[in-house]
Design a protein around this nucleic acid. Structure first.
Lengths: 137, 137
DNA sequence: TTAAGTGCAAAATCTTTGCAAATGT
DNA sequence: ACATTTGCAAAGATTTTGCACTTAA
């Protein structure tokens, strides 16, 4: 689908900044941190990038994941997403060497035993390891 | 076990700052953020607290968990822990109302399907929801 | 045209570092 | 006594806010 259209459908204007960010997030199946994108778009204002990412996240165009180092990362939503802050429905893979994050969209989400009186509404799952590029074999 | 001893066993000195922090972490089964502890120990230096927590984590006295907001939290290790940066072997529960983190030490860790070429070495699992205090029912 | 988005500067956080003074063992 | 730990001040890093200017629709 047209990127401009995806953006406009969420009530946002399809500006150059947004289109560039969206293009990167959509083409690679990876979760990017603000810093990653900042070094890709060296000419783009740091603050604008913060705002672009927040707007995307708030409108459900991308989702937010926190990696093992506490760094916030954003990934394009592969499927239809509810919009607003949606709990991630799928697990993510975090490479411990290159620190890239990949979406594991087809990994099933298991349920967990939680103490009485507690109620689970979702889960955030991060699998750690070595990605194809960094891992041996 | 004696707190001072636990601390000394890891090669650290049992100072008042360390004992106070350890006491809180050990008595409640919760993961505390730096900010939480800072407001408990209003008289304690911010930097000292950072260092106490880092030392505890590096020696394996406590483990580090990152919550949904990307905030680093520390929890006392219930069982024997390997020391050094050990990947958390158990899941955690993060309350979406009070933001407290609880250790789910007995929740089994499932395995996940990961793409070919990738290798998993551990996982970080966060269950979201309402804790006993904040939840209904 | 005009509401939304951008860029710059500046504030507010959060975390780390250096070093002299204090303290546990 | 001596290596560790603390406290303070200051530097760095990250994220947010305010406001005038620009731009997509």
């Amino acid at each position: 689908m047209d990127l401009s259209q995806q953006i406009r459908e969420r009530g946002l204007k399809a500006t150059p900044s947004r289109l560039s960010v969206m293009k990167v997030l959509e083409s690679k199946r990876q979760a990017y941190a603000h810093a990653d994108l900042e070094s890709i778009f060296i000419d783009m204002d740091r603050v604008t990038l913060y705002r672009v990412l927040n707007d995307f996240e708030e409108t459900g165009l991308v989702h937010k994941v926190i990696d093992m180092d506490g760094v916030t990362r954003f990934a394009h939503c592969g499927h239809s997403c509810p919009g607003g802050h949606h709990a991630d429905a799928h697990a993510h893979f975090n490479c411990q060497v290159c620190h890239k994050m990949y979406c594991l969209e087809n990994a099933p989400i298991p349920s967990f035993d939680i103490p009485k009186g507690f109620m689970a509404t979702g889960q955030n799952i991060l699998v750690l390891g070595l990605c194809k590029n960094c891992g041996a074999a």
